[in-house]
Design a protein around this nucleic acid. Sequence first.
DNA 1: TTCCGTCTGTTACGGATTTCACAACCGGAG
DNA 2: CTCCGGTTGTGAAATCCGTAACAGACGGAA
Lengths: 212, 212
Amino acid sequence: MALEIPEVVINRLPIYARALAALAEQGETVVSSQALGQALDVTPAQIRKDLSYFGRFGKQGRGYNVPGLLTRLREILGLDRQWHVCVVGVGRLGQAIVEYGGFGPQGFQIVAAFDADPAMVGRRVGGITVRAATELDGFLHNNRVDIGVVAVPAAVAQQVVDQLVKAGIRAILNYAPMTPHVPRDISIRHIDPVIAMQSMTFYIKLAEGGGK
Amino acid sequence: MALEIPEVVINRLPIYARALAALAEQGETVVSSQALGQALDVTPAQIRKDLSYFGRFGKQGRGYNVPGLLTRLREILGLDRQWHVCVVGVGRLGQAIVEYGGFGPQGFQIVAAFDADPAMVGRRVGGITVRAATELDGFLHNNRVDIGVVAVPAAVAQQVVDQLVKAGIRAILNYAPMTPHVPRDISIRHIDPVIAMQSMTFYIKLAEGGGK
DNA sequence: TTCCGTCTGTTACGGATTTCACAACCGGAG
DNA sequence: CTCCGGTTGTGAAATCCGTAACAGACGGAA
Ligand SMILES: NC(=O)c1ccc[n+]([C@@H]2O[C@H](COP(=O)([O-])OP(=O)(O)OC[C@H]3O[C@@H](n4cnc5c(N)ncnc54)[C@H](O)[C@@H]3O)[C@@H](O)[C@H]2O)c1
Ligand SMILES: NC(=O)c1ccc[n+]([C@@H]2O[C@H](COP(=O)([O-])OP(=O)(O)OC[C@H]3O[C@@H](n4cnc5c(N)ncnc54)[C@H](O)[C@@H]3O)[C@@H](O)[C@H]2O)c1
């Protein structure tokens, strides 16, 4: 609406929302920025400033209304709708993703899965039927799909991403161990446990004494 | 050695290393910061600055020696050693992690897996035998384990993290959808596809026109 | 050897992000 | 009704980070 909102702020909002959901489940009705910050290892000022980009949700002397703030955050992030997701690559990882029960309850509905391997096509995985990779373009043009999950080998990931982008996908979740190129107006996030570990080893080594 | 190196810089190094490994495999022997930056969607200045924290690895007029820089980065990150990893929680996700062939070649050896479910204990998964969760403490005290992977339900994740930390683990890769509390000298990274999607929806919504 | 185009390492700058600090505010106690 | 402990929202200050720019170095051409 008004300001340009820093991307780091947007990236923190889902964390806040998740914590608020947990508090709501415990029956908490109000929370201060201090209490929330303590739970999330974030400074209270950070939380207040982040939220202030979007409005004034708290009450001085009290804190924030838990269900109220949760609802607002969900509106801001667009989590009050259903999002359509497709998965490309139904190998080991792709199957695990399709079968994972954690997306649906959060509003991310897996509406299709594609694989290039004829042996995979037609099989039912986690309630949906695997389609041929050749059907990808057609499907995306005839159905609204918001987010594409890329779970193919790195060697073909760029090609798959290009297909998704050309077909009008707005966001990509990439599991392949490479950095695909996407236009600036497409969101992309990477999930890579190896990369995550490889930055932690630096600090382990440092703690051991920097040297050997 | 000298300066305090920003964590963002450390987090980018594995990405550089991965790209260099790909170039090396293609037989490339030199690369400029410009070329590398183009491949990774990072500015050349960023790459040069990042590397300059650690030394002078390039040659003016030429660029960087690919295998040489890769070797140096691997040394800096500690990727020239073998790291011992344990997995806690061998459910769907934990099994997929243990069976995933992508860790070993990168020097991350899964040396043990633990589960609280008696039905799971004793089974062989991906070449290792699942141990009882009660053995966790003992195992960690008798064996060097560098990194713990947490793949248990969110409700018990904090408890598992506490156990790992108390037993002297230095780094944790957390797959549970919550933010466990860890001491400042322990590294932790989170992998959560739902959170990743939940920040992208903000931008999809924005692109659709901010409104509806 | 000299010249030229290229590319690094580094410093200086500016923008982005976080932290600080406090006025304004809230609701309850007395 | 007033006071008080507690907490927000927010500018200003401080810090962190990325970008720009250029001197100096390199290798090849001639
Ligand atoms: N980030 C993670 O946590 C993680 C974990 C495991 C694997 N991975 C990565 O995910 C990817 C898949 O891993 P995996 O273990 O499932 O591999 P896999 O070989 O089991 O599965 C890959 C699947 O992609 C299919 N495929 C190939 N080309 C395709 C195309 N053009 N269109 C559609 N489908 C195509 C193959 O037929 C296969 O079924 C790899 O890049 C791997 O490195 C990531
Ligand atoms: N980040 C992701 O990509 C991703 C994907 C799927 C699941 N998850 C998360 O990972 C976790 C595991 O998911 P899942 O689908 O494998 O669930 P799951 O129920 O199949 O497996 C959980 C396992 O943990 C074991 N366990 C429970 N308490 C334990 C303890 N104290 N010590 C050791 N083991 C214990 C259980 O016996 C079970 O085998 C969940 O928190 C889930 O939300 C994350």
